[in-house]
Amino acid sequence: MTMLKVRGVSRRFGGLTAVDDVSFDVHEGQIKALIGPNGAGKSTLFNCVTGFDTPHEGSVEFKGQQLVGRRPQVAVQMGLARTFQNTQLFDEMTAHENVMVGAAARHAAGFFAAALRLPTALAQEQEAAATASRLLRRTGIEEWADTFAADLPAGIRRLVEIARALATDPSMVLLDEPAAGLNATETAELVETLRRIRDDGVTVLVVEHDMGLVMEVSDEILVLDRGKKIAEGPPRMIQKDPLVIAAYLGEESDDG
């Protein structure tokens, strides 16, 4: 089954076309990677898919429903969660409270119920707390539960954000550079975490610079360069693709 169906998405900033007529599918149960040199348009595409940005053209269907024009929290409630390249945690809240915010994503707003401590509000509170504890265990960071997010090491911050995304009970998560700032051990653990997420039945789309990680975990890879899709396929095919090699070599010679 096709989880995410992206067709002809374009997003321009002034004269620059950041994403240019990109189409791809993500199938249920897959780990798909989105790679490309810096400035290839990966984050813009991510934002267009998750409702944080609106494409000028094209359509994004998630589980058969149109996503373009919907607000981000609606996408979350439909089952599409995400993390950010620069982690967006709530610094003055503990790791557990951070994840609880995600766990309450599908609960009713409940100002009235909360102010009066109605049984529904208290039951949802317990449920959210239990979900948060479970996901902190699942991502292996339960010992950090009561630490304020501001005091967490970078690697743990990434995992808290992943746990928060999973707490919204998604069918699919989009992870924006989850390995950035992680050391080798943490990266190896992340690989295990990504596999566990997929084994739990959550489809994964991941933007990542760490090629070792991408080649190891992805079922399929999508390559962007200067806003255009230049390749799509299984890792072994992508490694040998002349266009992909040229795009990455080009980037290296720019840097040097």
Binding site: T50, F52, R71, Q73, F84, Q88, F90, M93, G110, A114
Partner: peptide, 26 residues
């Protein structure tokens, strides 16, 4: 009561990071 339960967390989340709050379904 309000601040101790979900609405209070949502408010603090919004204050902490509006992007993070949106991505958490707030």
């Amino acid at each position: 009561n309000l601040t101790a339960l979900r609405p209070g967390r949502a408010m603090r989340a919004l204050h902490g990071s509006e992007l993070g709050a949106l991505a958490s379904g707030v």
